[in-house]
Structures are given as C-alpha cells and as structure tokens.
Simulated assay, not measured.
Amino acid sequence: MNVDTEAVPFLDLASINTILQHDYDVAWKSVMQHGRFVGGPEVEEFEGHFSAYCGARACVGVANGTDALTLILAGLGIGPGDEVIVPANTFIATAEAVCAVGARPRFVDVLPDTLLIDPDAAAAAIRPGTAAIVAVHLFGQMADLHALHRVARRHGLALIEDAAHAHGARRRGRRAGSCSDAAAFSFYPSRNLGALGDGGAVVTNNVELAEWVRSCGDHGRSVTDRYRHVQRGCNSRLDSLQAGMLSVKLASLDTANTARRQAMEHYLRHLPPWCEPVAEHPESESVYHLAVIQVDNRAAVAASLERNRIGWGIHYPIPCHRQPAYKEFVEYLPVAERAARRVLSLPMSPSLSTAAIERVCEVLWKAPG
C-alpha cells in the first residue's frame, strides 16, 4: 500500500458541514439569544419548510426516525392483533417500530434489481389481520408507491413510507413524503438531510394525524391547554437547535442531491463489469443516500478497499427476518438473503471528487471480483 495515497472516507461529514459553517453559526446564535431550546420558533419554521418541500400538508418534528414511524403506526390505530408488512431488506428500526406498538411484522421479499419491497410479494402476504404496508425507500430510491397504493386500497390497508434514506427523492414526479398516509423521516447525521445530532419527522397530508402525533410526542398534551394531558403520550420532540441547523441544510439539499447523482453517474462509467450496481427504476429519481453494488466475493473486495484506505459499508449483512431478536418471524426470502451476502456500499457524499471515485474504481478493477 502506498502510505502517501490520500484516504477516501465512506462519508465526509466534516466537509459537508464546513461549507455551511457560517449559516450554522447564525442559527446557533439565534437560538442562544432567545433561549427556547425546546419548542422554539425554529421548529415551526422548519416544519413548514419541510412539509412544503415534500409536497405535503403537515410536518411534525420528533426525536428520531424510529419514533416517527412508531408514532405514525400508533396514530393510525395499529397495535396488538395487527400485522404490518415490512420488506426484509431494511434497517432493523422499521421492524422495531412495528413491535413497539404491539403489532407483528410480516417480512416480505424485495425486487432483485432495486432491492426495494416487491409489491406482488406484499399482496401475497396479506392476511385477515394485516393492517398496513411499510414501503421502505432504500439507498435513496423510492419504492413503487403506485403499485403498493393499489394493493393497500384494494384491501383497506394503511400505506406508510419509511423515508429515512430518501430526502428529496422522486418517483413519477412526486417526492417522498407526499404519496401515502404518512411518511417517517430520519435526520440522523449521515442522512442526506442530516442534523448535527438526532432528529426525525412525520410528514403527512392527514392534518388530524399530524395533530395527534404532535400531542402524543409532547407527553399527550392538549394543543390548547399545556397543563391538560388528553392521552398517554411520550417525550419525542425535535429541539430548536437541530431544527435551525436542518433549515440551513434544507436550503441546499437539492444541490447536494444533484452532486450525489453526478457522483453515482461517474461511478457507473468507471466500475468494473463484475460490480453490479443496484438499479434505478426508470420512473425514479434517486438521491443516492448510498452507492450500493453487489459483488460475489465481498470479503476480498472489502479487504482490498481497506488496504487502500477507502471507506466502505454493508447495508445490510443480516436481513431483518434472520436477526436473532426477530427469529419468531422467520421466513425464507431468497432475494433479500442473496443480496445480504453480496451488497457493498462505496464512498458517497456530495463533496466526493471525481478523482476519489476514479481511485475507488481503480482499486476495484484490481480486486478479486
């Protein structure tokens, strides 16, 4: 290994945030001056901006993306005795939220090209106790909500978006967050729209659901009388500092997403043929939260990247239905299980240079495919 070769980080958060430092400082000073660290004006401002950005009527900031999904499920009345259809290829938080409300996840397989939930598999999994389908928008690309909406409508099910990877993504011209009963967003720092800590949001066209989520996440407090608690709630609020920082980042999100798309296009021109990129559906406009390929010899390829100081990740090496904590829900889902053995995430960032991409690809060309 040439020790003089510059490392390529998996995600360069320092570079992303340094560009916005001046605006972050302004937002920080504003919150410090008024001192309303919880429930300050920045929260309402961000909620308005983000709901408009998504093309939805309402947004409620919450503590994190898992809470967002849990609150949606609870607000829709989903709980014990219900089943919720969930793709096996997702982060464990999707299933975690279903179990948190007392419902049972019903894991289904994914499409082999996009690795997104298979609408036909979802339809085949519906049983008398099925209450909802969670469409996970993975790696930056939206699932087929048009097909899933038909399935949900035919069977009277709720359709929920897990949009943690999809801030700004479009399908058929509509953005994530505008095409379902409600959408859960995460603002974990690594997200395309990432906070400087944790955070999340519920985005929906159902104003009554939004009001319920706001009340529940604020200890079940009445919206008209802060001393009256009208339901058994929880503590899940987006704080003023994070909301201020998110408003700063939202202003440049489309520019950053365009840079991610350009980075992926450069990858596609230079990857060796044995690297199989996850496909982008013709109706989709992915925001490439991750740059995911599939390879047959992942351990050896990852070792080559490691030796050359190139960051990498795996999303995800164990599908949800094979996790020890969810063994009671085990199914045989061949597409998700094969993908779990082959997926590999390459460096991706809006600040990723073409030179860095070419170096990654040069290492891949020399790796045992």
Rank of each mutant, 00 (worst) to 15 (best):
A97M: 04
Q242F: 08
G81Y: 11
R307I: 08
L344T: 06
W312G: 02
A103D: 10
A93E: 10
D109R: 10
I160G: 02
L271C: 10
A176H: 05
R174D: 07
S345P: 05
G217Q: 06
P347R: 09
D198G: 14
A356P: 01
P80G: 09
P319I: 13
C179S: 14
S190V: 12
S180Q: 08
T18D: 10
G313L: 13
P189Q: 02
R154M: 08
V278D: 04
D12K: 08
D296G: 11
R260F: 01
P128D: 05
V136K: 04
V287Q: 00
I117W: 00
G48I: 11
T66C: 03
A299R: 14
R260Q: 03
S215T: 07
N235C: 11
N235Y: 12
V151H: 01
L196T: 03
E337G: 04
A97R: 02
V8P: 00
H219I: 05
V43M: 08
L246E: 06
E283Q: 12
D4P: 00
T90K: 00
V202Q: 00
L11T: 14
V202C: 01
L111S: 12
I117A: 02
F37W: 13
E44G: 13
R221C: 09
E45C: 02
R214W: 07
S236L: 06
V108S: 06
L145M: 09
V360F: 05
E42S: 10
A169G: 06
P324E: 00
A325N: 08
P273V: 12
H155L: 01
A93K: 05
D218Y: 01
R359S: 04
I16M: 04
S284H: 05
G177L: 03
A336C: 12
G311W: 09
L344D: 07
F46Q: 06
V136Q: 03
R341T: 15
G65F: 04
A182Y: 10
V38K: 09
V98R: 07
D144V: 08
A259V: 02
Q231D: 00
T66E: 09
V207I: 15
D239F: 09
V26M: 04
V343M: 03
C361N: 09
D198S: 14
S286N: 14
